[in-house]
Write a protein that binds this DNA or RNA. Sequence first.
DNA 1: CTCAGATTTC
DNA 2: GAAATCTGAG
Lengths: 266, 266
Amino acid sequence: MLELRLVQGSLLKKVLESIKDLVNDANFDCSATGFSLQAMDSSHVALVALLLRAEGFEHYRCDRNISMGMNLNNMSKMLKCAGNDDIITIKADDGSDTVTFMFESPTQDKISDFEMKLMDIDSEHLGIPDAEYHAIVRMPSVEFARICKDLSSIGDTVVISVTKEGVKFSTRGDIGSANIVCRQNTTVDKPEEATVIEMNEPVSLTFALRYMNSFTKATPLSNTVTISLSSDLPVVVEYKIAEMGYVRFYLAPKIEEDEDETKPQA
Amino acid sequence: MLELRLVQGSLLKKVLESIKDLVNDANFDCSATGFSLQAMDSSHVALVALLLRAEGFEHYRCDRNISMGMNLNNMSKMLKCAGNDDIITIKADDGSDTVTFMFESPTQDKISDFEMKLMDIDSEHLGIPDAEYHAIVRMPSVEFARICKDLSSIGDTVVISVTKEGVKFSTRGDIGSANIVCRQNTTVDKPEEATVIEMNEPVSLTFALRYMNSFTKATPLSNTVTISLSSDLPVVVEYKIAEMGYVRFYLAPKIEEDEDETKPQA
DNA sequence: CTCAGATTTC
DNA sequence: GAAATCTGAG
């Protein structure tokens, strides 16, 4: 028996909006500690990891560990039927091949329940080791989203370079090239507007903007985003979910020639 | 060496939005007095003239006259990457085949530079003589835009007729006909809401609405628009740019039978 | 000016 | 279905 009651239902709606374009089907893993998901994107390039801790739910009952395979598109369709201030409850009976989403309007005047078929999905659950990163950048999530969107109108890849002074996002395409430098800045009025750089070692890595732009769909989940970089490790783009957990996106860097190298424009 | 620093960068963004649909490629001419452009639209029917005077820039350095050929679509893509309250600096080295747009956020925490390839464009620079116009109408730019949009849902051309009392915009199409009369009105609270008519001689001219609707893309540049009309001269639709100059659109009238003539809908 | 909602187009 | 554009609200 599974029953998870989430007062701020809009959180779950936003989580699904942020990952459904990247992942078609995935197993939601439910244990006593929380509700989580880990899945590769459909082209097996990026990885999504979601955690919603049990403490973040108003009521959390999970009698035994269970893995529920869902089509994220269908799940998203159902969640779209919940109001933004509805309370959402996820329910599943032991051994059942369906899951039920219940939506309660704030006034309790409207109660909906949507039942969805589960599916069998084989997933390799990768252990993601905690790594030491060369550099961790925290910045306003809207600013990161804007930068990724802007650069993708010029080129296909972004080079992210971190020094103590700031983080530089660069791209190059047919019509020209672009560099955007964000200085470290901790002296703003609100902490969520700060750009903070923790750096052990300078680092410069190249990524496909297409995936970065997918990741920024999670912007509504958090005011800030954390970008963790190490040479030859996948970058981690993390959106914290207040009081509950996170959505993290992992993407391997492109192995490329030195960006300063002069090469013919093939 | 060229370096033009424009504090109100949104002006340049709006200028490009207003002309990029009309003109694909154009030479920006830079001299000690200002930054200007003159170009025919791609179908060689309308003409655009832009002037941004040197005095409107916070810093203006132009060592020698230079003509820079740009693809306006690509330039617009880059300017879209500037924030609306960014400071924009246009830079070019002597003899360089690129131009650089630098964007500084108001807090100086984000500095972007975009480099764009220049192109060779042969342009006939037409001398546009200052003419005496039979009638000059000044009216709120949003009102003019609304009229052109509304009329284009009925017909393809607009007849603009000016008398002392007011200006009449008429069209006719398959589904019917329409006349919109704006009376002279100088007694409004704000001068930019006035409709003012200076008339030496009544005039009535026909224009393609398709172009008029293109011109009204410049509406965000100014609260008012000036429409200058003479028989057998191109109409001038002018949007003043505060403290700096203007964007002017020229369009030849259609030579047509009397508008009241009943003719088969070919 | 930014955010969100709505609309339109690909 | 998604992206871009436009509009109204805060």
